[in-house]
Nucleic acid binder design. Structure first.
Lengths: 351, 351
DNA sequence: GGAACCCTTGCACACGGTTGCAAAGACAGA
DNA sequence: TCTGTCTTTGCAACCGTGTGCAAGGGTTCC
């Protein structure tokens, strides 16, 4: 049943201010042609009546709703939560508002979310996880909806793709492990199989292969803390125990560290070097002091909205892919000193 | 500039299906009077054309946008993130969609967020932190917008207030401390001064006063990990060092534990008992194994949306306040055995 | 004084839906 | 065949806004 809602409309404001309805509309449109006097009178009447421009109606005629859809799964997870926070904040700074849609792991649910975005005529959708069906993506694009893919590494044309240089980070981690004297390498991954996770794994394997070192790869479960523990149990009971482990995410790394220390009594970094990825807040907590690679969430959000600000034809002209660096954050789960001067300066600040 | 967007509208679907525009509308309105035959033809034409009902326009005439506003600060924080996740999920399950608005600490920004909610004719607003101005709240209510306050403990009439029994939890913590043989009590709080934080503090002090024990209260900074560390430095260097500390949130407790163990070399729970509040995921990580009180986020979300489902007059008849229990989660930062059978069973499961 | 110009204002239509109302069609019963 | 009832359908009005267009009024310049 339609609830008895009584919003004050421009007409009532117009009546009270003694002007036409269009004058009210213009008073609220920056740059419109209104005399200072009428604008003042309109604004007065508006605040007196508690008038708020109806953005649904405005979106209807402007064909621009001001809504940006954020779609992703596991939004309670530290990394995702920080991304959501950065994105909603960036949306507000850009004068938009974020609509967030939870998905489960399935691509079907991402498509459903995108359909929801179409329903609300969202100006753009930002996809944090999963991969929508190609047909729905095309539909969105045809309808003039911009799409941003974060860490999706897709080859579709049209969306903006923001990715990290996972491979470079992996090489960087390997270098650190080598300098620490490690030789028995392992990669602890989840079974999620997302593009960025796999890129890290591939990058690490490739870098190790380039210098002729083998890597034990273990994959288990979703990308959560508990998986890290299980991965530790598997890797640390292997016949040759690794002395350096690249964990695909910080959450996995935290679980791995806890199991290594508390279940296996190992000392990190003395017995075992570990790195993670994401630089979630917990990585800096002193129980972990995890050496990791930072997702530049603020920068990701900035890039996304900078692109969204662009006029459509301008955006089409730009390269549709952005690559950002995952800066190494040196802490205390790898032996030795930070490799670069920049990192060293940073570590000094943190210590 | 208005982007050249081309959405397919009901008229085009109508033309293609050879029916009137109203028939299309009815085909998408459950329970409307349409023959099975036309509905099928309409749906066919709709999918062929990629038609999506415009929810902005629908909201305009229905006076029900299907939007629920989630407003709060520190959305990247574990507890808040889990609440956001639960809420967005619950919104979707209720056939609504969540619009999340970031605020800073100020009440002014909460009012701004609420104004945004009015702009989009949100059906409801759920406030996770901060306190909006009374006048804006009234305005929302007058406009038929429902408001839910989470842990705000306000006396305003009209909004639904969902609160936890913080005092009861505090008493429960005290009992556990006493059974562990602790006598030098302390309360570690932030300076945020939110209603729930203060309720916990008051509850703990009152319970201690009832049996004649003094409590050292220390407050510092925002409710973050780093504040917990600083609080530890202050409390653990005091002339009489506390042997039991109730931390106002888990984040504070984690910082406190880390400082106590790593900076002061104390053993928990042998030298010092600690409890937190919220039961964030990290509390269960084995580096902390924090005994704490769980915020029933799923239940909170359920209560909120159950109330929002109600017809307005029905909702007005119900009591406008819900009190939920913060169940104790027994882990390993308090000496001894869990106080109740229920908790014991749970602990057994966890172990 | 008149022409040219600019600023301001109101009218009317468009945006894309929903829905009350009446008409049309189908069908049963007398 | 006529009447009454029920279902389905289209028309038209409405939701609240933005804006092109033309008209009105004031100012400037010749």
């Amino acid at each position: 049943m339609p609830p008895p809602r009584k919003f004050v409309s421009a007409r009532e404001v117009a009546e009270r201010a003694g002007v036409s309805r269009s004058a009210v509309s213009r008073a609220f449109t920056p740059g419109a042609s209104v005399s200072e006097d009428t604008r003042r009178r309109v604004l007065e009447a508006a605040t007196a009546l508690g008038y708020h421009v109806n953005h649904l109606a405005r979106g209807l005629s402007l064909k621009e709703s001001g809504i940006v859809c954020l779609v992703g799964s596991e939004l309670g997870t530290p990394y995702r939560a920080s991304l959501v926070k950065a994105m909603t904040q960036a949306a507000q700074d850009a004068g938009k508002v974020a609509m967030v849609i939870n998905t489960d792991r399935s691509d079907e649910s991402v498509s459903a979310a995108l359909r929801q975005a179409l329903h609300y005529r969202a100006d753009a959708s930002i996809i944090l996880s999963g991969m929508p069906d190609k047909s729905i993506t095309r539909l969105c694009l045809e309808n003039g909806q911009r799409i941003v893919l974060i860490n999706r590494d897709d080859d579709q044309d049209g969306p903006l793709r923001i990715n990290l240089r996972d491979g470079e980070a992996a090489r960087c981690a390997l270098t650190a492990f080598l300098r620490a004297g490690c030789r028995r390498l392992a990669f602890a991954n989840s079974e999620a199989g997302t593009p960025s996770l796999m890129a890290r794994e591939r990058g690490f394997l490739a870098a190790a292969a380039a210098i002729g070192l083998p890597v034990t790869v273990e994959r288990f479960g979703p990308s959560v803390y508990e998986s890290g523990r299980e991965l530790a149990r598997r890797l640390l009971t292997a016949r040759v125990r690794p002395d350096a482990v690249f964990c695909a995410t910080d959450l996995i790394a935290c679980g791995f560290l806890d199991a290594a220390r508390h279940e296996f009594g190992l000392a990190v970094p003395e017995d075992l070097c570990v790195t993670g990825f994401d630089d979630i807040e917990q990585a800096s907590w002193s129980s972990y002091s995890l050496t990791t690679f930072a997702q530049p969430v603020a920068e990701i959000a900035r890039e996304a909205f900078a692109w969204l600000r662009l006029a459509p034809e301008e955006a089409a002209r730009r390269p549709a892919a952005v690559e950002l660096e995952a800066r190494m954050v040196w802490r205390r789960t790898v032996r030795g000193r930070p490799p670069a001067a920049r990192a060293a300066a940073r570590a000094a600040v943190e210590a």
